[in-house]
Deep mutational scan, measured.
Amino acid sequence: MTEYKLVVVGAGGVGKSALTIQLIQNHFVDEYDPTIEDSYRKQVVIDGETCLLDILDTAGQEEYSAMRDQYMRTGEGFLCVFAINNTKSFEDIHHYREQIKRVKDSEDVPMVLVGNKCDLPSRTVDTKQAQDLARSYGIPFIETSAKTRQGVDDAFYTLVREIRKHKEKMSKDGKKKKKKSKTKCVIM
Rank of each mutant, 00 (worst) to 15 (best):
T74P: 05
S65R: 09
V125C: 12
L120V: 12
F82T: 15
R102D: 05
V125T: 11
C118T: 11
H95V: 09
A66L: 09
G77M: 13
V109K: 02
Y64H: 04
R102W: 04
H95A: 12
V112A: 03
M67Y: 08
R68L: 02
D69A: 06
I84Q: 15
N116T: 15
C80Q: 03
N116K: 02
D126N: 09
V109E: 02
R102G: 05
T124C: 11
Y64D: 03
G115L: 13
M111Y: 04
D119N: 07
V112R: 00
L79Y: 01
D105N: 08
D105K: 04
K88L: 09
M72G: 07
L79M: 08
V81Q: 04
R73Q: 11
E107D: 12
A83L: 01
D126V: 07
T74H: 12
V114Q: 02
R68V: 03
R68D: 03
L113P: 00
N86R: 05
V109N: 01
D126W: 07
L79Q: 02
C80W: 03
K117I: 15
L120H: 13
E107R: 07
R102A: 12
L113H: 00
K88C: 11
R68Q: 06
Q70S: 13
V112S: 00
R102S: 11
V125W: 12
V103Q: 05
H94R: 14
M111F: 10
R123Q: 13
F78D: 00
R123T: 13
I84W: 13
P110R: 02
I100R: 01
T74Q: 14
L113W: 10
I84R: 13
K117P: 00
A83P: 11
P110Q: 02
M72D: 04
K117N: 14
V125Y: 10
L113D: 01
T87R: 07
E98R: 05
E63Y: 01
R97N: 05
V109I: 10
E91V: 05
D69C: 03
D105S: 07
Y96G: 01
D119I: 02
A83Q: 14
V112W: 02
S65M: 08
Q70R: 15
T87S: 10
K88W: 12
R123I: 09
V125L: 11
I93V: 06
A83C: 04
S65E: 11
T74R: 13
R73P: 09
Q70M: 07
D126C: 09
D105A: 08
D69R: 06
D69H: 07
V112T: 02
Q99L: 15
R97G: 06
S65A: 12
M111P: 00
K101Y: 08
A66W: 14
M67S: 06
Y96Q: 03
R123V: 12
L79C: 04
K88R: 09
S106N: 09
Y64K: 02
V103D: 07
T74L: 08
V109T: 05
E76H: 13
L120T: 10
F82K: 01
V109W: 06
G115A: 14
N116W: 00
Y64N: 04
P110F: 02
T124S: 12
G77R: 00
G115D: 03
S106P: 05
K104L: 10
K117A: 15
Y71N: 13
K101E: 10
C80N: 02
F82P: 00
Y71T: 13
E107F: 12
L120G: 14
E76S: 10
V125F: 10
E76M: 14
T74W: 10
F78V: 04
R102V: 05
V81K: 00
K117W: 15
L120R: 07
P110A: 04
D108A: 06
D126Q: 08
M72F: 05
D119C: 06
R68F: 03
A83W: 01
R68K: 07
G75C: 07
K117R: 13
N86W: 01
V81S: 06
N86Y: 02
S65H: 08
F82N: 02
T74E: 14
K101C: 14
L120Y: 06
K117T: 14
Y71V: 10
R73W: 06
S65P: 05
Y71L: 03
C118P: 07
Y64P: 02
P121Q: 13
T124N: 12
D105V: 05
E91A: 07
L79G: 00
M67W: 12
D105C: 12
E98T: 04
L79W: 00
P110I: 03
F82C: 14
V109R: 03
K117Q: 13
S122N: 12
I100P: 00
Q99R: 07
G77F: 12
M67I: 10
D92G: 05
I93R: 01
P121G: 14
F90Y: 11
L79T: 00
V114G: 01
D126A: 09
S106L: 12
V114Y: 00
V103L: 10
S65I: 06
R97M: 15
S89E: 05
D69F: 02
V125K: 11
Q99F: 10
P121N: 13
M72L: 04
N116M: 15
E63H: 01
N116C: 15
A66C: 14
R68A: 05
K104M: 12
K104H: 12
G75R: 04
S122C: 11
R123N: 13
R68C: 03
V125S: 12
Y71A: 14
L113E: 00
F78G: 00
N86P: 02
R123M: 13
A83G: 14
Q70A: 13
M111L: 07
D126E: 10
F82V: 14
D105P: 05
R97C: 15
C80K: 01
V125Q: 13
V112D: 00
R73K: 09
Q70I: 06
D126G: 09
N116F: 01
V81D: 00
K101T: 08
D69V: 01
V114R: 00
K117M: 15
P121A: 12
E76C: 15
K88T: 13
G75I: 05
D126I: 06
K101M: 13
M67N: 11
A66H: 12
S122V: 09
D105E: 10
F82E: 01
K104F: 12
C118K: 06
K101W: 06
A83H: 07
L79S: 01
T124R: 11
F82I: 09
S122M: 10
G115P: 06
D105F: 05
E107M: 14
D105Y: 06
E63T: 04
D119V: 02
Q70Y: 07
R102Y: 05
I84A: 15
T74D: 14
P121K: 14
N86E: 12
Q70W: 04
F78H: 02
A66P: 12
L113S: 02
E76R: 05
G75W: 07
D108E: 09
G75L: 03
V114I: 13
D126R: 06
R97D: 04
D69N: 09
P110L: 02
S122K: 08
A66Y: 12
D126P: 07
A66F: 15
E76L: 12
M111C: 04
C80G: 04
E76N: 09
D119R: 03
I84S: 15
G77E: 03
K104A: 11
V81P: 02
D126L: 07
R68I: 01
D108N: 09
F78A: 01
S122F: 08
L113I: 14
G115F: 14
I100E: 01
R123S: 14
M72S: 06
Q70F: 05
V114A: 03
G77L: 10
D119K: 03
V109L: 06
M111T: 03
V114D: 00
G77Y: 10
S65W: 08
M72W: 07
